[in-house]
Write a protein that binds this DNA or RNA. Structure first.
Length: 423
RNA sequence: GUGGGUGUAGCUCAGUUGGCAGAGCACCAGGUUGUGGCCCUGGGUGUCGUGGGUUCAAGCCCCAUCACUCACCCCA
């Protein structure tokens, strides 16, 4: 039966089979409709970029850039990388095409695959999909609120429950150094109680220590300073406004003083939507403000904010509750004998061209077998055509639910069916 | 990258101290020469993940490997 050895898909990659696609499309349509109402335009960017873009954008010291990227040498000598996230590409496109020239306030979204070479586990694939949303040119807190509100509505519309928004502020280049200093001072004091990883983080990215899950570390930094206590006046006001307006809009959230995110570019508002149904991979969406990134990547100083929704994770959360049925044929033509099958084939072609979903059996099967398949496919009606019908010019049209059969004239059949709205 | 668990039919899973490869569901055919669901009868559709080793004999024991899975790490 099997010829040659079986080639399997790449580890951590995934086929999205026909049965699941309807749910994916439902999510996409929900997102597109909602985002359009908030003025976000779809943008499509390549899935490969020069490695340098991600190295500079995401940060050389992040896990993503350090060890998770799929990078290859192009024949011309360039280093290319399969995108591990979409923000850097969108920022690149914003700068490259001077999208700020016409109107500096621009809002985009994109949906597509990302690639990170991590160890796969529940809710974590090496090729995974994100719904990525970005807004440029707005420095004030309203856009932060608007995006979190929109995200909240998105989950609500999809019927996702058991989610919790977590919110924090990471400050800005004015206030962060003061916080860093205070944090480093504390870390130095408790250094001997920290795990090996945290000692490494201590110098390179001390804020990450706050995110560590090792109990002894958590204990050691239990009374570490929180960045929200070190915010400068501007950041303080900004954050205050975000929380007040979210409350006003009825968006439930939780202040999470320890919410630290893994990408270097974040500033001020950061947020994450967490769920308890995905095991350890609790984040189903996350994002934040990145006011310095556009400039870092060679564009004009432009405030910006964005978030990404983990599409696969969302599907997994929804798949447990939301079932979408595949379309059922309006008509099944059960043909008996080659002559009838030939006629059926042309009727099917004509009906399909008119946008009507019809099925028929292509092999020489018994009527019983054909009825069985029609039933399994959920066909509303079955047209039974054999030698006798071809000779008499009339055939039976059976309603599968009521079992009532009516005679129809075969001449001009397609028009008759369409006129009577039978199909 | 590290650790644990699991790989047997399309799916869910049994398989004893090593002794002819199993069940339910699904599928196919027939019962009904041209009428679906229910029922009855028949059919196994399989490289027991893969490659080695031990043994008269391996689904079972040993080694390796791949994949899946859960957790660490990190993130969406």
């Amino acid at each position: 039966m099997r010829i040659g050895s079986m080639i399997q898909l790449i580890r951590g990659f995934k086929d999205i089979l026909p049965g699941e696609v309807a749910l994916w499309q439902h999510i996409e349509r929900t997102a597109a409709a909602l985002f359009a109402a908030f003025g976000f335009d779809e943008i499509r960017v390549p899935i490969m970029e020069k490695t340098e873009l991600f190295a500079r954008g995401i940060g050389e010291d992040t896990d993503i850039v350090e060890k998770e990227m799929y990078t290859l040498d192009d024949r011309g000598g360039d280093k290319l990388t399969l995108r591990p996230e979409a923000t850097a590409s969108i920022v690149r496109a914003y700068i490259q095409h001077k999208l700020y020239a016409e109107d500096p306030l621009r809002k985009f979204y994109t949906i597509g695959p990302m690639f990170r070479r991590e160890r796969p586990q529940k809710g974590r694939y090496r090729q995974f999909y994100q719904i990525d949303v970005e807004a440029f040119g707005m420095a004030g807190p309203y856009i932060d609120v608007q995006m979190i509100y929109m995200l909240h509505l998105f989950f609500q519309r999809l019927g996702v429950s058991r989610t919790q928004a977590h919110l924090n502020s990471l400050g800005c280049p004015v206030c962060r150094p003061r916080f860093r200093e205070a944090l480093t001072a504390l870390l130095n004091k408790v250094e001997d109680r920290l795990c090996a990883d945290c000692r490494r983080r201590q110098a390179r990215n001390p804020m990450r220590v706050l995110d560590c899950k090792v109990p002894t570390c958590r204990e050691a930094v239990a009374d570490a300073p929180a960045i929200v206590d070190y915010l400068c006046d501007d950041c303080q006001r900004h954050f205050q406004s975000v929380t007040e307006n979210l409350t006003q809009l009825g968006v439930p959230f939780e202040l999470d003083r320890r919410l630290v995110r893994g990408l270097d570019y974040y500033t001020r508002t950061t947020f994450e939507i967490q769920t308890d149904v995905l095991g350890a991979q609790s984040a189903v969406a996350g994002g934040g403000r990145y006011d310095g990134l556009v400039e870092t990547l060679g564009g004009p100083a432009t405030p910006a904010i964005g978030f990404a929704v983990g599409f696969d994770r969302l599907v997994e959360v929804l798949g447990q509750s939301l079932k979408i049925e595949n379309p059922k044929p309006a008509l099944f033509i059960a043909a008996l004998g080659e002559a009838a099958r030939r006629k059926a084939f042309y009727w099917c072609a004509e009906l399909a061209a008119a946008g009507i979903y019809v099925e028929m059996e292509h092999a020489d099967k018994s009527l019983k077998a054909q009825m069985k398949r029609a039933d399994r496919l959920g066909a509303a009606r079955v047209l039974i055509v054999g030698e006798a019908e071809l000779a008499s010019g009339k055939a039976n049209l059976r309603d599968m639910a009521t079992k009532v059969q009516a005679e129809v004239v075969l001449a001009g059949l397609v028009d008759t069916l369409k006129q009577q709205s039978i199909v």
